[in-house]
Nucleic acid binder design. Structure first.
Lengths: 183, 183
DNA sequence: TGACAATGACTGACTGGTCAGTCATAAAGT
DNA sequence: ACTTTATGACTGACCAGTCAGTCATTGTCA
């Protein structure tokens, strides 16, 4: 996976993958049909821990919706955006159009579930009166947009201008939930 | 450029590029040093019309900041996100880490200028009282985040679930500027 | 004006290197 | 002994980059 993340699908050499895995090239073909299906299966299996990282954080019982979203964002930024897992997301964005199977899987397992969960949270927030903007529930993408920005910024521009992703997300939450209580 | 967008740098064959351009492969080498510098130069020149599309829209004299941002977003979504130019942005995200020169250029010419302009608009909005959240000026990325989401959604997921990017952006603006006046 | 020469943009067959995928052989396991 | 698992040298396709040759255009001279 690290090889694919570093070089992309086409430029990755199976000799390097084998060396990195500590096996001979032939061994790869005992486990995978060809390079393409190896790539797809690797992504599929790599996404699983990414999902469990995200849903792994237990929501505090008495927490406000804002606290839940903020905790979620904190986990995402610390565990995904600023780590190699973030590059996995970038890899999917990069290769997705050429690997519809990958894009489909990612949509079904991550995007649609994540957005559904976020929508539920938003509706809870609306019901509790924490969120004023009812139409936000129609576009849960807005809630997570800065998180994706953080992933991309991290791998492309952080050397030019570091970005405090968590603080950015908090400002974003201020827009949605109203000004932050003093911290 | 279309070949690179469709296949990525590594998988693009110069024979195909030549054929598409209506010249022989050798001709390419009369204009470019090698495949890599061709890629970089092509991106550089392709970015120019992208920039001019975005700054090309004249701001109406009496327009509110919200109208200006919304007009900007409309242009972006119509002229970039839903066209081949959007895939150019995706290509830069995809290949950026392996072509620092491309990422640098994109940061200097598009990202840093765009964010600076957006920050100026935000500060104008704050001064005029249209925007309540002063800290938004620290993260102009938030303002454009849904636009980037739209680009990525378009090329990866629109077949699964079409996204009304402009409406999403309007909802996002509602968060920033307050509820929309009736339309 | 017409014949000839010079130019250089363009061509595409060719080369050398790279790499996905194979398979005869070897090692490990039972 | 024999089955399963692993190896890595090998093959053939592929492709970036080269370069000797072509030819339309422009310039020169009688």
């Amino acid at each position: 996976m690290d090889e694919f993340i570093a070089r992309g699908f086409a430029a990755t050499r199976l000799d390097d993958v084998a060396k990195r895995a500590g096996v001979a090239k032939g061994t790869i073909y005992l486990h995978f049909k060809d390079k393409e299906s190896m790539f797809e299966e690797l992504i599929r299996t790599a996404i699983v821990p990414l999902i469990s990282r995200l849903w792994g954080t237990p929501p505090q019982p008495g927490a406000s919706v804002r606290d839940m979203v903020e905790g979620f964002a904190k986990t995402f930024i610390e565990e995904v955006a600023t780590t190699r897992r973030g590059d996995l997301v970038r890899l999917i964005v990069a290769e997705g159009p050429r690997f519809p199977a990958v894009a489909d899987f990612y949509y079904r397992e991550v995007v649609s579930r994540g957005l559904a969960g976020m929508r539920a949270l938003i509706e809870l927030g609306i019901a509790r009166g924490e969120i004023q903007h009812k139409s936000l529930a129609r576009f849960p993408q807005i809630m997570v947009a800065p998180a994706l920005i953080a992933v991309i910024w991290q791998s492309l521009f952080s050397r030019h201008a570091p970005l405090d992703a968590l603080e950015m997300f908090r400002v974003h939450l201020d827009l949605i939930f109203g000004e932050r209580r003093t911290t």
